[in-house]
Design a protein around this nucleic acid. Structure first.
Lengths: 153, 153
DNA sequence: TTTTTAGTTCTCTTTTTTATGAACTAACAA
DNA sequence: TTGTTAGTTCATAAAAAAGAGAACTAAAAA
């Protein structure tokens, strides 16, 4: 039960990717592991061994990943073990959430505009312009997704 | 030289927003301050006082913000002080960078596909589907931006 | 009933991040 | 020349995050 160097490297890279999103390191590495394994699932203990981390680390990470709706588990008849796997169906939703996270700056800018006087109209105008841009993007994004679904159905 | 409660609150909120992007707390708070101030600029010492942080914290944060191309400074004739302000022109670019950060998962998924066998075609198919979706988005995004610019010129 | 399996919870250490404060520098001013 | 202003750098303290390991629990198996 050993991962190849290439697999390990990819897991680390995916780990870093999710770490940058503000998650703790193991979360990303567990997701990387579940992506790399051919079965696309693993038991609690397999995860522990593949990643050589403690039980508590795995337990906490899996609890968190499930609460984030990124991981789920199934059981097999006659077995007590849980088989953890990625919630594949949510990937697009997760990505949209990330997009909305980026767009959320416009809410903050709106509040900024509320406290600013109109003495610096050049700067105020820059903020408004940027807000318009974001509003446009926010409106167009769902249309883009619809377009994709129309093309791929 | 005091900020109102409302201004402070907005600065904290903007701080948290940028913290979630992986930056250290003061970076976001400095950006928040520069957004909230009517002049939209502040000297080194004003930043220090408004945010009640140490000189070194301000110095390091400003150096970093400048290297990230988010802040710049101007000087005024006869004054040695620097007037720091946000690089407003880069906001859209920053946002596009953030988007590309989200899309970068497709590079990782490509590598994942390279190490996966074809034994689990259902899962592999899910990955490919998601990759197609991202590729579509990556292609459409610049078009969307063009469209916005055409409408607002 | 006792044991085993599968995971959880709690306490504590290790590591990393964030920021402080003091000493330092560079440029100009008195 | 000495002082002052405007910052920088460095060593370190304080705080937060991440994870380890042991004790614990709950359900099934023997």
């Amino acid at each position: 039960m050993k991962l190849s160097d290439k697999e390990q490297e990819i897991i680390e890279r995916i780990g870093v990717f999710f770490e940058k999103k503000g998650h703790q390191p193991i979360l990303g590495r567990i997701m990387g592991l579940l992506l790399v394994l051919d079965r696309a699932e693993a038991t609690f203990d397999e995860i522990r061994e593949y990643l050589s981390v403690s039980k508590s680390a795995v337990s906490n990470a899996l609890t968190l990943l499930q609460s984030l709706d990124r991981v789920e588990y199934t059981t097999k008849p006659g077995e007590r073990k849980r088989y953890f796997r990625l919630k594949v169906r949510n990937w697009r939703k997760d990505m949209q959430d990330d997009m909305n996270g980026i767009f959320r700056i416009s809410v903050l800018l709106k509040e900024v505009m509320e406290v600013r006087s109109n003495s610096n109209s050049e700067f105020n105008h820059c903020i408004s312009d940027f807000q318009n841009f974001i509003e446009f993007m926010k409106e167009e994004m769902p249309k883009l997704i619809e377009k994709y679904d129309r093309l791929h159905s």
